[in-house]
């Protein structure tokens, strides 16, 4: 199996590489672009990134396994991260998780029966004053109730996801770290 980054993404990656004194520093952005393209980090993508940044595949693989946001397995088109750390827990995060598990028919860490949503537990997502909260793809949903959480996730299931390239939700990296709308 081979992997190549789409030309637009590769162009962007080249611009990002130029931001650093060492090529290697673009390892995280490169992997982020790969994951954005295919939903998770494929084995072939690791080799591609290694080649591109003149690293060994072991080095790149070591990076992939270190960070929780890199998905090593295929995930559903929608990923829900539910915060289970103390502030959210005090406000009822457990009930939110249980409601979602019931509705989706899967446990946290698994993908729903219909294959549309992967449910994951997260540690504090820096929204502690507004818990319980979850992250649905790139969006934060705050001050949840179990009912509200179920409603939001159900509504998202059939929404088209068509993110622009190279960006966490709607903003493009431009040359030299700037951006153009």
């Amino acid at each position: 199996m081979t992997f190549t980054l789409s030309p637009e993404r590769e162009k962007l990656l080249d611009q990002i590489i130029a931001r650093y004194p060492e090529k290697r520093a673009a390892c995280l952005p490169a992997l982020q672009l790969c994951q954005e393209q295919t939903g998770h980090i494929e084995e072939a993508a690791v080799a591609w990134v290694a080649e591109k940044l003149a690293l060994s595949t072991a080095q790149v693989q070591g990076v992939v396994t270190f960070y929780t946001m890199f998905q090593q397995k295929k995930v559903a088109p929608n990923v829900v991260w539910i915060c289970r750390t103390l502030s959210c827990e005090l406000m009822g995060a457990k009930a939110v998780q249980q409601a979602l598990e019931k509705k989706l028919g899967c446990h946290a860490g698994e993908t729903s029966k219909d294959g549309k949503v992967t449910l994951l537990k997260a540690e504090c997502l820096a929204a502690c004053g507004y818990g319980p909260m979850m992250q649905l793809n790139d969006e934060y949903h705050l001050a949840l109730t179990p009912e509200k959480a179920v409603e939001i996730v159900e509504a998202a299931k059939d929404r088209a996801r068509d993110l622009p390239i190279g960006d966490p939700g709607g903003w493009q990296f431009g040359p030299q770290g700037g951006g153009t709308r």
């Binding site: 966490p168 951006g179 153009t180 709308r181």
Partner: peptide, 21 residues
Amino acid sequence: VRGELALSIRRLERAIAEARE
């Protein structure tokens, strides 16, 4: 920036671009 903070990243990128312009 922490990877999960998509809105922060977007607004910061935009702010940097505006300041550059």
